[in-house]
Design a protein around this nucleic acid. Structure first.
Lengths: 240, 240
DNA sequence: GCAAAAGTGTTAACTGTACACCCATGT
DNA sequence: ACATGGGTGTACAGTTAACACTTTTGC
């Protein structure tokens, strides 16, 4: 703050970690799992390696505008249901070409969206990532931790699920995103108690093998909200 | 990533939000409360206003090293018990002089430490902040939210409290940091169950007005750890 | 003995998991 | 009718807030 003119300048990038749930498809070898949007680099450094979408911040735009513009080049913007900032990486050697400070973002695309990707871009399974350029593998790992935590205490599920769904479908989405199975009954109870869920009134037709038709639900809000106060040291129920 | 040579460069700063609990002192007008380290600017922009410690990232250092160096100029480094990154601000107009991207950090100093501050620096009460330079008031607000949340589900209390303390003292520290009162009994139970607390074996002498002598406690760990898994959608106790 | 402060125990509320059971539909 | 899957209810465990009660000290 004191030597304003002798201050060094740096390249500053934003890096997008966009997740999408891939559901299991019956009679298919395509594995279910969480996937992340990436593209294969066609120049040095790290030519041939997979990398997250990224790009430099332009002089008149904020990082939020920048990440938006970068994602617009890969997918349809309406398909990004949630976007939030993660941490900023500043290791001087993280870019072998020139020092670059990078701010990571977390983006979420609902299962129902199927963006037409440009060439050299694809959805990679997070549990079997190929070698990634720069520190991008580490960025994916930290974005995943953030997503899994936030699924627990926020309504972030809305950004992964379809606009309307049955509880069985929602359970599948959560199971894939969390990387473990969970009980649809209890998921319903928890989300309902928090006021995250409401029935659409419609009902699905039963499958070809019979079974009771499922109710259709939707999330009450489609913007990010904290719906569960952290577990402890909270004021009692009486003091709200 | 594509136009490597036409990429613009920016000043990049780190900004420190260092909190310290000020306990109530009997027979004194000094108000108890959470305080934040700041200094009064002596040059434009925002001459005369209060600002958080900040400074530009140097070419060969990471931001972590940079924030450390900046704080070393204000306080003793051993006195910073915890330091973590917050969000990064990129509004093109946040610095009227020249575009500057800034990464905020959260630092914590225990109540027992009384750093000798340089001239024009002071601890400001967060609930009665004077007008601040740049977006620093907003940074303080977001740092406070982070601190208060983390006190609930991590062992971060160790960074605010003394090395050893009675439960009454610890309750005071938490009450000031959280901005509301809480029960020493329950605080003890919660922290003990999580394994955050252990008795030192020593015991304090009673006050001059009598009363049972207090046990002395300390935190079992003095590095940041998440001690409470988020409340929900967790695997059951049986599946661990 | 009495007041003051620390520590213990008890109760009630809330939240989440596990699981048995009932319900609606297609064949 | 019966298999299939959706939905409801119940039991249980874990965690926390609230608060009365006991213990230990100084005066």
């Amino acid at each position: 703050m004191d030597q304003r003119d002798s201050t060094p300048r740096y390249r500053h990038e934003v890096v997008a970690t966009v997740f999408r749930v891939r559901l299991p498809v019956t009679d298919t070898a395509v594995p279910a799992g969480l996937t992340v949007l990436a593209w294969q680099r066609r120049r040095d450094p790290y030519e041939g390696r997979w990398a997250l979408p990224s790009g430099p911040v332009q002089p008149t735009e904020s990082m939020a505008e920048c990440i938006t513009a970068i994602l617009a080049a890969k997918v349809d913007l309406d398909q990004i249901a949630h976007l939030e900032q993660l941490d900023t990486r500043s290791d001087p050697d993280r870019d072998p070409f020139e020092r670059t400070i990078a701010t990571a973002y977390l983006g979420l695309v609902p299962v129902t969206e199927h963006p037409t990707l440009p060439a050299h871009a694809d959805w990679l399974p997070v549990d079997r990532l190929p070698p990634m350029a720069f520190d991008h593998a580490d960025i994916v790992a930290s974005a995943m931790r953030r997503l899994r935590n936030k699924l627990s205490y926020t309504n972030l599920g809305f950004a992964l699920a379809a606009p309307s769904f049955t509880m069985a479908e929602l359970r599948q989405v959560y199971a894939v995103a969390l990387g473990r199975d969970l009980d649809a009954t209890n998921l319903h109870r928890v989300l309902t108690r928090r006021g995250q869920l409401e029935p659409t009134g419609r009902t699905r037709r039963a499958g070809r093998e019979g079974g009771r038709p499922a109710q259709e639900f939707r999330f009450t809000s489609r913007t990010a909200e904290v719906t569960d106060q952290f577990a402890v040291l909270r004021p009692g129920p009486g003091s709200s």
